[in-house]
Amino acid sequence: MSGMKFSLSHSLSEAKWRFAVPVLLVLFWEAFSRSGVIPASLLPAPSRVFSTWMDWIFGINEAAQDSSGKWIYDAFASCMRVTAGYLIAAVSGIALGVAIGWWRWVERAIEPTVQMLRPVPPVSWIPLAIIWFGIANKPAIFLVFLGAFFPILMNTVHGVKTSDRNLLRAAAMAGAKQGQLLRFVILPAAMPSIFAGLRIGIGSAWMLTVTAEMVAVKSGLGYALWDSYYFLRYDLVIAAMISIGLLGFLADWILKQIMNSVLRWQQVSTVQGKA
């Protein structure tokens, strides 16, 4: 019973510190906006942003005007593009990363091209993406794929190359075939690096879908943000920014839960090592 009380007290204390900085920033923002140093039309107070955001979501008071009640459609459009591009990047990045890390001939054949393309900013592909795919979902999905692909690829390559060679030798001596080595030794050993790449990739995916929606798509949170800027609706601009941040945080949290579940063996070994 005392252990449960300690755990609850510890969780509450941790939550208090985790939310302390955001609450202080919001209070400072509210006070600064109301001070009149910057016109309220240029820096709307959090209370106004929250009111507009709630109308954007629920359609309660027309504070968001034409966007009233349309948040769910914008958020769904952005989430769909992120999910599609990210899944393509995850599957191809992990598969190609394992191949580059495991087979020398694949590394020699592909890595120079990868290293040449990797420094090119994904946003520089926007003109070509529009020419190739038009103004629709496809250019946004393509840009999301580019943004997420390289972090996943490079982290997978790193994870495969830094796998414990003693484990490989032990498995080979036990008679494991190459496919078994990849499945039962290399992939589990590379998983921490792969998940690190996946978490970096999901952040890049959200950044690129918003960029694409500003230029090449006529729906989504990025489009709503850019359209609000043109009409000087900075409360909606900030509400869109907050929405993107929260959805990105949620996506990373889901990935983190999956990672903790898949890498439970690593957490157990860490705890045993400390003991």
Score class of each variant (00 low, 15 high):
10 H>A: 09
93 G>P: 00
208 L>Y: 14
202 I>P: 00
65 Q>W: 15
228 S>W: 06
153 L>M: 04
190 A>D: 01
271 V>M: 01
115 Q>K: 11
98 V>L: 05
200 I>D: 01
50 F>E: 02
183 R>L: 05
167 L>D: 02
203 G>M: 01
237 V>R: 03
172 A>T: 14
219 S>N: 10
109 A>T: 10
192 P>F: 12
185 V>M: 02
86 Y>N: 03
275 A>E: 00
250 L>A: 15
237 V>F: 07
201 G>C: 01
156 T>V: 04
196 A>D: 01
233 R>C: 06
13 S>A: 09
257 Q>N: 11
160 V>C: 04
264 R>F: 14
200 I>R: 06
99 A>D: 01
49 V>L: 02
16 K>Y: 13
227 D>V: 13
84 A>Q: 07
240 A>S: 09
13 S>W: 10
9 S>K: 10
22 P>C: 06
262 V>L: 02
232 L>D: 07
58 F>Q: 07
146 L>Q: 06
109 A>K: 05
240 A>K: 08
79 C>G: 14
42 L>P: 00
97 G>K: 06
160 V>I: 12
173 M>W: 14
184 F>Y: 15
125 W>N: 03
211 T>K: 01
262 V>P: 00
79 C>M: 13
160 V>Y: 10
43 L>Q: 06
67 S>N: 14
37 V>K: 12
137 N>T: 11
172 A>G: 06
187 L>S: 08
79 C>W: 15
2 S>E: 05
124 S>P: 00
40 A>D: 04
209 T>V: 12
162 T>I: 09
12 L>S: 05
80 M>R: 15
161 K>Q: 08
7 S>C: 02
166 N>W: 12
243 S>M: 04
69 G>A: 11
45 A>G: 10
99 A>G: 06
69 G>F: 11
9 S>R: 09
234 Y>P: 00
50 F>H: 07
240 A>M: 04
269 S>G: 01
222 G>C: 03
192 P>I: 09
102 W>L: 05
210 V>S: 03
236 L>Q: 13
144 V>A: 02
37 V>M: 09
50 F>Q: 03
9 S>C: 03
18 R>A: 14
132 W>M: 08
151 P>T: 11
102 W>M: 03
23 V>I: 14
71 W>G: 08
202 I>S: 02
227 D>R: 13
203 G>Q: 01
64 A>D: 08
61 N>W: 12
93 G>H: 10
58 F>A: 11
126 I>L: 02
214 M>E: 03
228 S>M: 01
